[in-house]
Simulated scan of single mutants.
Amino acid sequence: MTQGAVLDLDDRFAAFSDHWRPRVAARLNGQDVRLVKVQGVFPWHSHAEADEMFLVWKGRFRVEFRDRIETLDPGQFIVVPRGVEHRTAADAEAEVLIFEPSQVINTGDAAVSDFTAPQGQTI
């Protein structure tokens, strides 16, 4: 992660292969730009203090709410408001950018599990 440098998303995504382990590609104004590969279903959770924005780079990605499911294609994004319970999913591998405050833990209020990513991993 280098501030003030041009980053290539294809190169950055090619640098890792695991799922549900966001990497910090950039930091700005207390926010992280995180890159994550996803496949399968993530646990239900919420973030009491932070909104989350998901932007799909490649593949198809779902954000499931208790009352509806939103499916996103490349170039589409969604903002999940703070405090709203949700889970994310992808039937096949997808690449997603997440924009959220640096202190946010990816599993939010869900119990610590194999899905809980180490904080601050950069790429």
Results as ranks from 00 to 15, higher is better:
residue 21 R to E: 03
residue 73 D to S: 15
residue 82 R to E: 03
residue 82 R to Y: 04
residue 74 P to R: 00
residue 29 N to Q: 06
residue 22 P to E: 06
residue 18 D to R: 00
residue 29 N to T: 01
residue 78 I to A: 00
residue 25 A to E: 04
residue 46 S to T: 08
residue 50 A to G: 05
residue 65 F to C: 05
residue 37 K to F: 03
residue 85 E to C: 06
residue 75 G to M: 12
residue 77 F to T: 08
residue 53 M to W: 10
residue 64 E to Q: 15
residue 30 G to C: 01
residue 54 F to T: 07
residue 60 R to Y: 05
residue 52 E to Y: 08
residue 40 G to T: 03
residue 48 A to M: 06
residue 17 S to I: 06
residue 84 V to S: 08
residue 80 V to Y: 07
residue 85 E to N: 13
residue 92 A to D: 13
residue 46 S to D: 07
residue 41 V to R: 12
residue 59 G to S: 01
residue 49 E to K: 14
residue 92 A to N: 08
residue 87 R to V: 00
residue 20 W to D: 00
residue 83 G to E: 07
residue 30 G to M: 02
residue 87 R to K: 10
residue 34 R to G: 11
residue 84 V to D: 10
residue 76 Q to P: 09
residue 38 V to R: 02
residue 30 G to Y: 00
residue 54 F to E: 02
residue 47 H to T: 03
residue 62 R to V: 02
residue 88 T to R: 09
residue 49 E to V: 11
residue 22 P to I: 12
residue 58 K to M: 03
residue 20 W to F: 15
residue 70 E to W: 06
residue 31 Q to E: 09
residue 17 S to G: 10
residue 21 R to M: 11
residue 52 E to K: 09
residue 87 R to W: 05
residue 59 G to F: 02
residue 47 H to N: 00
residue 78 I to V: 15
residue 83 G to C: 12
